[in-house]
Nucleic acid binder design. Structure first.
Length: 404
RNA sequence: GGGGAGAUUCCAGAGCGGCCAAAUGGGGCAGACUGUAAAUCUGUUGUCUUACGACUUCGCAGGUUCGAAUCCUGCUCUCCCCA
């Protein structure tokens, strides 16, 4: 296939990037690729320990997709080797070491979810245990000798953990080396990563250089700030919008981001054309309400299509703005003749994790039946064949209770 | 190898023999308000119980005591200083 002119490719590639190190080398690589009509080898590593992808992951995956669309060769590394050992970074808890099967399984799940963004046909999947697992201790020592401790601990997250007296295990120093070794093995031209990966990506450059290769270009994407507006999007902060979230949730959660993030989201997680971005930036400042709805729609549309996205918008307006009952709510049937305490009913359909919690919800006015707030903790419900009412618990848990 | 500090409820962090299901902050949840599932304010935040109360929880295992998160012994883990 024919490649786009280098200048046009660059424009697409640079969208949203934090840093490209070094950009001149990327230009050279693109020029060479164009001349020889050979695709660049783009590398992206993933951690298969938690295969629940969210919009934060999508930032980098989308960048990968852009490379695919430009005709380059994309390689997704499933980090099964590191996953088996259990990367303890960022935590002082030992993570459970996964078995080989677990990791392969997770890797599969990861790829399935990533396929919502990547073109699976054009993605090469590799497992790094295939080469890292064969290294001898001697090889590891030789690799380790290429880095000094001072260089390692100057890495930002190590420095922070060191200063706050948090433990750093020795093997964590080996992770960047392992990742760099991946680049050597795959002879990558470009490695993608979050801006927190800079150090690791740079290690790849050094190791490739020592191996006599043309070092990879490191392309860093910003870390997407989560719905709380402060931390990077991640499952552990519970500020994420999952890729397999249903359309309604995706829409609603997208609306809950703080206003100042609207533009970033447009740039990083939607497909709005480059030339429209400045307009949207303007709109995000002058008309945040509508800009945010546009954003929510754009995000939802990307994963569920236009029709579903519009439905999600309607659902949101109905339930949140007009505070009406949505059309499609789950139904829970109880045997006719049954007498059940409301508290237990709420717990039994998992609208609350414990009876204590249900009780609290009622006490706080968070429970209503057909729009009437229930304040009696001891309320009992008699079910008969005719029973049918809508139970609302908290802001957005609706259920239709019926008798059978 | 030697010396010191520490492990508390989702997180951070008080408590140091009964008044401790355990201060305070963060987070979560609910209510009010709002363009919003944002911000703000208020309430709430182990389990079971209508309630009285009962039960489980303060690294792990034992022990002292009428009674332990708090005292003792051993173990595990972490941090700091020295070598």
């Amino acid at each position: 296939m024919a490649f786009l002119p280098v200048k046009e490719q660059l424009e697409i590639i640079k969208r949203g990037t934090v840093e490209i190190v070094p950009e001149e080398e990327l230009v050279l690589k693109l020029e060479k690729s164009f001349k020889l009509n050979t695709p660049l080898r783009i590398k992206l590593g993933c951690d298969p320990t938690r295969p629940d992808l969210h919009l934060g992951h999508s930032v980098i995956l989308r960048k990968m997709r852009q490379f695919q669309d430009l005709g380059h060769h994309c390689i997704l590394i499933i980090g099964d080797f590191t996953g088996m050992i259990g990367d303890p970074s960022g935590a002082n808890k030992t993570r459970p070491s996964l078995t080989k099967e677990d990791v392969r399984e997770n890797g599969k799940t990861y790829f399935e979810q990533a396929s919502k963004i990547l073109d699976p046909q054009k993605t090469e999947i590799v497992y790094n245990a295939d080469w890292l697992g064969n290294m001898k201790f001697e090889d590891v020592i030789r690799l380790a000798s290429k880095f000094t401790v001072a260089r390692m601990i100057e890495r930002d997250d190590f420095t922070k953990r060191y200063e706050s007296n948090e433990p750093i295990s020795l093997h964590e120093f080996l992770y960047p080396l392992a990742q760099g070794q991946d680049s050597v093995h795959l002879r990558s031209d470009v490695e993608l990563g979050g801006s927190d990966q800079k150090f690791n990506l740079l290690v790849g450059r050094q190791l490739q250089r020592e191996d006599g290769q043309d070092p990879q270009v490191c392309l860093m994407m910003p870390l997407l700030v989560g719905t709380d507006g402060t931390h990077k999007m991640s499952k552990s902060y519970d500020n994420y919008i999952g890729l397999d979230e249903d359309a309604n949730n995706m829409y609603g959660k997208s609306l809950s981001i703080p206003d100042q993030l609207i533009y970033d989201y447009f740039e990083l997680v939607t497909d709005v054309p480059l030339e429209e971005l400045p307009v949207l930036k303007q709109k995000a400042e002058t008309d945040p309400r509508n800009a945010k709805h546009d954003l929510a729609l754009a995000i939802t549309e990307l994963y569920y299509g236009k029709e579903a996205a519009i439905k999600a918008r309607e659902h949101f307006e109905q339930t949140v703005i007009k505070k009406e009952i949505p059309d499609d709510i789950p139904e829970f049937s109880f045997a006719a003749g049954e007498q059940i305490r409301l508290i237990q009913l709420i717990t039994s359909i998992k609208f609350a994790p414990s009876n204590g919690e249900s009780r609290r919800l009622i006490q706080q006015g968070g429970v209503s039946i057909d729009g009437e707030t229930v304040s009696d903790i001891n309320a009992e419900i008699s079910i008969d064949a005719e029973t049918s009412f809508v139970l609302k618990v908290g802001k957005r848990k609706f259920g239709k209770i019926t008798g059978k």
